[in-house]
Computed example of a mutant assay.
Amino acid sequence: MITGTRASRHQAITDLLTRHEVQSQTQLSQLLAEQGFSVTQATLSRDLDELGAVKLRREGQLVYAVAAEGGDGLTVASLGEPDGRLRKVCNDLLVSAEWAENLVVLKTPPGGASLLASAIDHARPQDVLGTIAGDDTIMVITTSRAAAPVVTEHFLQLAQGQA
């Protein structure tokens, strides 16, 4: 592996976050050092920001996660089938959900929207055409006006562990 490039470092970070439940930048820096990467705290912080990394609650602890390449969801541990992953990510990240016309607006903590949108896209819930994610807001496009309140309620139930 070429360890001098930014792209190789980003790939190593993504791989490490896939295989390990990393709780701190110090821990991640040590794991990178074991692979031959020497990074400063500032560089590592910038890398995590560029990768869109966020911290998720996992078994009572906060761990780093990034969206997988190709939009395949989270790279922290196996979250099971698409509905199971969507349930877990909604529970971890969904702050609020409201609808208007055929749109549902979901709010997450800063940096969490792309992770939740990726989980939604991967699960392909009924009556959802697609998502558009910003930093902390997701717009979910539903198939009809009638579907929007049903989809909104579904996401809220997932977040509360009821679905």
Results as ranks from 00 to 15, higher is better:
33 A>N: 11
56 L>P: 00
134 G>E: 11
154 H>V: 05
162 Q>I: 06
14 T>E: 14
5 T>P: 14
138 I>R: 09
29 S>N: 12
78 S>G: 11
103 L>E: 14
109 P>T: 04
77 A>W: 04
4 G>N: 12
162 Q>N: 12
134 G>M: 09
70 G>A: 04
53 A>G: 02
112 G>C: 08
157 Q>D: 13
153 E>M: 07
5 T>G: 10
131 T>K: 09
39 V>F: 01
19 R>H: 07
133 A>T: 05
50 E>D: 10
123 A>C: 13
84 G>I: 02
68 A>G: 15
66 V>S: 06
129 L>Q: 14
63 V>H: 04
53 A>H: 08
11 Q>P: 05
152 T>M: 15
72 D>Y: 14
12 A>H: 00
147 A>C: 07
22 V>N: 05
27 Q>P: 10
95 V>H: 09
12 A>P: 01
19 R>K: 13
28 L>I: 02
80 G>K: 05
122 H>R: 15
150 V>Y: 13
20 H>E: 13
20 H>M: 11
60 G>A: 10
62 L>D: 13
17 L>W: 04
80 G>E: 13
106 L>V: 14
153 E>L: 14
28 L>R: 07
75 T>I: 07
120 I>F: 03
65 A>K: 05
139 M>D: 07
7 A>N: 11
117 A>S: 14
76 V>A: 05
67 A>C: 11
129 L>W: 13
60 G>V: 07
19 R>P: 00
74 L>V: 11
152 T>W: 05
36 G>I: 01
100 A>T: 09
2 I>H: 12
111 G>W: 11
89 V>T: 08
156 L>K: 15
35 Q>F: 02
17 L>I: 08
10 H>L: 10
21 E>V: 02
95 V>F: 02
101 E>M: 12
120 I>Y: 00
41 Q>I: 08
40 T>P: 00
31 L>I: 06
1 M>W: 08
163 A>C: 10
135 D>P: 02
64 Y>G: 03
33 A>M: 01
10 H>M: 07
133 A>L: 04
150 V>N: 07
124 R>H: 12
135 D>K: 13
42 A>W: 06
77 A>N: 07
65 A>H: 04
47 D>Q: 01
118 S>R: 12
12 A>V: 00
49 D>I: 02
1 M>P: 14
61 Q>G: 03
9 R>F: 02
125 P>K: 08
110 P>G: 01
63 V>M: 01
13 I>S: 01
21 E>H: 12
24 S>A: 08
44 L>E: 06
144 S>E: 10
5 T>I: 06
74 L>F: 13
139 M>I: 14
103 L>H: 13
124 R>F: 05
75 T>W: 00
119 A>N: 04
150 V>R: 15
118 S>F: 00
53 A>R: 05
6 R>M: 08
121 D>P: 05
83 D>M: 13
129 L>I: 14
144 S>A: 14
83 D>C: 09
48 L>E: 01
127 D>T: 01
82 P>C: 06
59 E>Q: 12
13 I>C: 00
12 A>F: 01
117 A>Y: 12
98 E>I: 07
140 V>G: 06
22 V>C: 09
85 R>Q: 15
16 L>P: 00
58 R>Y: 14
105 V>P: 08
67 A>T: 14
9 R>S: 01
132 I>C: 10
162 Q>T: 11
142 T>M: 10
66 V>F: 02
81 E>H: 09
9 R>G: 04
132 I>M: 13
15 D>A: 13
94 L>W: 02
